[in-house]
Simulated assay, not measured.
Amino acid sequence: MMLTRKKSALLLALAAAGIALAGYGYYWWHTARFMPSTDDAYVGADISAISAKVSGYIHTIAVQDNAQVKQGDLLVQLDNRDYLAAVEQASGEVAAQQAALSDIAATRQLQLATIAGAHASLLAAQAVTQKTTSDQRRYTLLASSAAVSQQIRDHAQADYHQAIAEESKTRADKTVAERQLQVLDARELQAKAALTKAQAGLAMAKLNLEYTEIRAPFAGVVGNRRAWSGSFVSSGTQLLSLVPSHGLWIDANFKESQLANMQPGQAAHIVADVLPGRTFSGHVASLSPATGSRFSILPAENATGNFTKIVQRVPVRIVLEGDDAALGLLRPGLSVTVTVDERSAR
Rank of each mutant, 00 (worst) to 15 (best):
A186N: 12
R187T: 14
R187N: 15
E188R: 15
L189D: 15
L189G: 15
Q190R: 13
Q190Y: 07
Q190T: 15
A191L: 09
A191W: 08
A191S: 13
A194V: 10
T196N: 15
T196M: 13
K197Q: 15
K197G: 10
K197S: 15
A198C: 08
A200V: 04
G201M: 02
G201V: 11
L202I: 06
A203S: 12
M204N: 12
M204Q: 14
M204R: 14
A205R: 05
K206F: 10
K206R: 14
L207Y: 13
L207E: 13
L209W: 02
Y211P: 00
Y211W: 05
Y211S: 02
T212A: 04
T212R: 02
E213C: 11
I214A: 03
R215Q: 08
P217T: 12
P217A: 13
P217C: 08
F218C: 06
F218R: 03
F218V: 05
F218W: 01
F218M: 11
A219D: 10
A219G: 11
A219H: 07
G220D: 07
G220M: 08
V221P: 00
V221Y: 03
V222W: 04
G223H: 01
G223N: 10
N224H: 11
N224D: 10
N224T: 10
N224Q: 12
R225C: 02
R225W: 05
A227K: 05
W228G: 10
W228M: 13
W228K: 12
W228N: 13
G230R: 03
G230T: 07
F232L: 14
S234Y: 03
S234D: 11
S234H: 07
S235Y: 01
S235A: 12
G236W: 09
G236F: 05
T237V: 08
T237L: 02
L239S: 00
L239I: 06
S241H: 06
S241F: 00
S241T: 12
L242A: 05
S245L: 08
S245P: 05
S245R: 05
S245H: 08
G247L: 02
G247R: 02
L248T: 09
L248V: 09
L248S: 09
L248N: 08
W249K: 15
I250W: 04
I250E: 05
D251I: 11
A252H: 03
N253V: 11
N253H: 14
N253P: 01
F254L: 07
F254R: 01
F254W: 04
F254K: 01
F254D: 00
K255M: 09
K255A: 15
E256H: 02
E256L: 04
L259F: 04
L259Y: 06
A260C: 05
N261A: 14
M262Q: 02
Q263R: 13
Q263C: 04
Q263A: 14
P264L: 08
G265P: 03
Q266K: 04
Q266M: 10
Q266Y: 02
A267M: 13
